Computed example of a mutant assay.
Amino acid sequence: MLTLDKIYHASYVLKDVIRPTDLIAAPNINPEAQVYLKTENLQITGSFKVRGAYYKISQLTDEEKAKGVIACSAGNHAQGVALAAAKNGIKSVICIPDSAPISKVEATKRYGAEVCLVEGVYDDAHNRAVQLQEETGATFIHPFDDEDVIAGQGTIGLELLNQLPDLDAVIVPVGGGGLISGVAYAIKKLNPNCKVYGVQASGAPSMVNSLRDHKQESLSSVSTIADGIAVKTPGDLTYEICSEYVDEVVTVTDDEISTAILTLIEQQKLIAEGAGAVAVAAALFNKVDIKGKKVVCLVSGGNIDVTILSRVINRGLLKAGRSADITIALMDKPGQLKGVSQIIAELGGNVVAIHHDRADESMDINACYLHIVMETRDYAHIEQIKSALTAAGYQIV
Rank of each mutant, 00 (worst) to 15 (best):
Ile180Met: 02
Cys242Leu: 13
Gln131Thr: 13
Val130Met: 14
Asp124Gln: 13
Lys65Trp: 05
Tyr185Asn: 01
Val296Asp: 04
Val130Gln: 10
Asn127Gln: 15
Ala345Ile: 05
Val295Arg: 00
Val199Leu: 10
Tyr394Asp: 04
Ile326His: 00
Gln59Lys: 14
Gln79Asn: 10
Ile326Asn: 01
Arg311His: 14
Ser47Lys: 13
Val50Asp: 12
Lys269Asn: 15
Asn209Gly: 10
Ala204Thr: 01
Ser92Leu: 09
Thr155Met: 03
Ala151Cys: 00
Ser218Tyr: 03
Gly177Arg: 04
Lys386Val: 04
Phe48Glu: 05
Ala353Thr: 09
Leu211Gln: 01
Glu134Ala: 15
Val149Asn: 07
Ile344Asn: 10
Lys87Val: 07
Ser221Asn: 13
Asp124Phe: 07
Ala71Val: 06
Ser181Gln: 03
Lys215Phe: 04
Gln43Leu: 11
Ala10Cys: 07
Arg51Trp: 12
Leu161Ile: 02
Thr45Trp: 06
Glu32Arg: 12
Asp166Leu: 06
Gln268Pro: 05
Gln131Ala: 14
Tyr122Ser: 04
Glu159Met: 08
Ala186Thr: 03
Phe48Val: 11
Ile344Ser: 08
Val105Glu: 12
Leu262Gln: 12
Val280Pro: 07
Leu337Thr: 07
Leu337Phe: 05
Ala138Val: 06
Gly46Lys: 09
Phe140Val: 02
Ala66Thr: 01
Ser258His: 07
Arg51Thr: 05
Ala392Cys: 08
Ser362Lys: 13
Gln267Phe: 01
Pro334Phe: 03
Ala125Tyr: 08
Tyr12Thr: 13
Ser210Glu: 06
Val280Cys: 09
Tyr394Arg: 01
Arg377Asp: 14
Ala329Pro: 00
Ile257Gln: 05
Gln336Ser: 10
Phe144Glu: 01
Asp145Arg: 12
Thr307Leu: 12
Val288His: 01
Asn28Asp: 14
Val231Thr: 11
Asp145Cys: 02
Lys269Asp: 10
Lys293Phe: 00
Lys109Pro: 09
Ala33Phe: 02
Val17Ser: 08
Thr253Gly: 07
Asp168Glu: 01
Ile180Cys: 05
Glu240Met: 13
Ala184Asp: 01
Asn286Ile: 08
Glu147Cys: 06
Thr21Val: 14
Thr21Ala: 12
Glu240Arg: 15
Leu83Gly: 08
Val252Tyr: 05
Thr39Pro: 02
Ala380Glu: 15
Gln384His: 11
Tyr111Asp: 11
Ile290Arg: 04
Tyr379Gln: 12
Lys87Gly: 05
Leu117Arg: 10
Lys319Trp: 00
Arg128Asp: 07
Ile354Lys: 01
Asp22Pro: 10
Leu211Val: 08
Ala10Trp: 07
Arg358Pro: 00
Asp254Ala: 09
Ala125Ser: 15
Tyr369His: 13
Ser58Arg: 11
Ser387Ala: 15
Asn76Thr: 08
Tyr111Lys: 11
Lys386Phe: 06
Asp254Leu: 14
Ser223Arg: 12
His214Asp: 15
Lys232Gly: 08
Ser300Asn: 00
Ser58Glu: 12
Lys338Asp: 10
Leu42Met: 15
